[in-house]
Design a binder for these strands. Structure first.
Lengths: 347, 347
DNA sequence: TTGAAAGCGCTAACAG
DNA sequence: CTGTTAGCGCTTTCAA
């Protein structure tokens, strides 16, 4: 096993001190131009590669930020990570990524590991079950900047970048109402979670503001899978008094699943009889026919923005984070065929 | 800024030596049971968190593997990363991920960085333009295991996990032939790239083996975007002698795009007049109507397998990698409506 | 402009 | 079972 070249090897070869080598390699002004050149040439010659472990230990900076998300492969998160990685790599930082698989204990474990690795900053999209920031305290106490993105827990005083969830479902619901829809069913997520509670509120507010009554049983909280969504809808449709004229879903997976179910297994037409709206603007929603009306969360932007915010804190040596900032990303309503009534009257 | 607690702090508080603390914390058998307890209690009390930078420097192990992919957010790669991350985290390793954006120089930069960070192993899906493994030599020379996955360059003597690309398009093409198709158009990728060359070969072989002649102009190499695919097809269809009865694409994006184009802008029907097949089994391909026939590359499995292979090398202290292994993952043909002739005769 | 010396926090060989 | 000692490779203060 070939031992790695160190600055001492270079120093010995050149007959100078290792501290001079160190300075030369980091382009310190306090070293002669020709010494610099000699050092760099020798470094290249011997294939020297700085050992960042040693450097990091010495400077207690790692030029690394940690990212924790529930699921790496989800469209939303992989896009967000893309944005994060892009900003970080521009600034010369590395990114270490872990997924909590939506398990709180895993999240805690990951964060401990990232702390031990002395990341310079942290970007977290917490678990559904994360109810407080106790496990983030070690970062806060040590002045390591933390920014939450997409998801957050209540009463957090950390900075965060989030989508205006409530507004998103508000926009969707209002759009449906303008299309002449009144009996609007809401297939909700876990209403304990801040995010789905907000989305539900958006629906309720839009209904209220437009003077439309809704029955409590028109809101159904389910686990957000394709099959559970279809099951829930089936059950709901069994009561013939319940036939809705539109359905507001909280993600595209459930929306696409029920749209498929309705088109193929029932006599209702989309959107004439039942209009359907999703949430997230996943690639599939633009490919099917009719296209799925949905909202774009701009995941790439969310990642980019949260990353930029984090680096502002990192740069300012944390003093910036004394006051916690919240940036709210605006959703974009994407109207497609699944809600567009051909004969709808525009008021 | 609160200084971090070190083993020396613990040692001082307990009136013992820091080396004993170190041993106690790593559960060495060479330390008394009650000392261990005292140490751990004190560690918890003071909120001690081991500094892995120091530990890593000392042991020259980082418990970290590097992953380099072209694009994090592509379905294939995010799934693969999911698999990698899962295996790594089971083994107590961290994963650092970077994207090359398919730029060779960026890839090189990333690899240098990962080397400086002394990753214990490396998983790389190289750039399209990566033609040799020169930039990987530093790892090989220092006995840091490297495994390529999905993509690779020719003449590499590194271990790798790849899809049987040629077989995949062979299966697709043969399936089309069995559906009675004969004039099969192949919308290929960059034929300089090993992967697309292989896929093209699968098409050619299947045609040949089934005694079907194809014209050279029935293979069209394009940049793999939705719009370029549609353009290429339009141009091809202008010559009325050219109307194909099936099209083999090398990814789902192009397949979905031309399917949409054909259904909406031409008089041809899918699959009766023109059958269409994709590649990758992206989520959207199961949602549209008709569903898109495609092959599943099992990205999660590819990630998992390559990661497991890497850890075998890491564990065996590299001796295992003296001979390079290649694991070939088998594609799975997913037949859906876009190629299923209702009246097709099964022989 | 360069060198000498100390030390980041940890582990491990050696000694007792 | 515990302590002593040295050092991983680098940066940085101080002195020249």
């Amino acid at each position: 096993m070939k031992r790695n070249i160190t600055i001492h090897d270079l120093a010995r070869e050149l007959g100078i001190d290792s501290s001079t080598v160190s300075r030369a390699l980091s382009d310190s002004p306090r070293v002669g131009a020709k010494t610099k050149e000699r050092v760099k040439a020798k470094a290249k010659e011997l294939g020297y590669q700085r050992n960042l472990l040693a450097s990091n230990l010495r400077t207690s900076k790692t030029m690394t930020i940690g990212v924790v998300v529930p699921f790496i492969s989800r469209h939303f998160f992989s896009e967000a990570i893309d944005g994060i990685e892009q900003v970080a790599s521009e600034k010369g930082y590395r990114v270490i990524i872990s997924q909590s698989r939506d398990s709180f204990s895993k999240e805690k474990e990951i964060l401990d590991g990232m702390f031990m690795n002395r990341v310079d900053g942290l970007l977290v999209s917490p678990t559904q079950d994360t109810r407080d920031g106790e496990h983030l305290n070690q970062f806060v106490e040590n002045k390591i900047p933390v920014v939450l993105f997409d998801r957050f827990y209540e009463n957090s005083n950390l900075s965060k970048v989030v989508l205006a969830d409530r507004k998103a479902t508000y926009m969707i619901t209002e759009h449906l109402i303008k299309q002449g829809k009144k009996k609007i069913f809401h297939l909700a997520g876990d209403l304990e979670s801040t995010m789905y509670k907000e989305r539900c509120l958006g629906y309720k507010n839009a209904m209220f503001d437009n003077g439309i009554q809704y029955e409590e049983n028109y809101i159904k909280s389910i686990e957000l899978y394709a099959d559970t969504a279809v099951e829930a809808l089936k059950e709901f449709l069994e009561d013939k008094n319940n036939i809705p004229d539109a359905i507001v879903c909280v993600n595209d997976v459930t929306a696409l699943a029920i749209m498929k179910y309705i088109s193929e297994k029932t006599d209702y037409n989309v959107p004439e009889d039942i209009a359907i709206a999703g949430f997230s603007n996943e690639p599939a929603s633009d490919i099917i026919n009719p296209g799925l009306t949905t909202v774009d969360q701009h995941p790439f932007e969310i990642g980019k923005t949260s990353s930029e915010m984090l680096f502002d804190f990192v740069k300012d040596g944390y003093s910036g984070q004394l006051s916690s900032k919240t940036v709210v990303i605006q959703p974009e309503l994407i109207v497609r065929g699944s809600t567009t009534m051909k004969l709808a009257v525009e008021y």
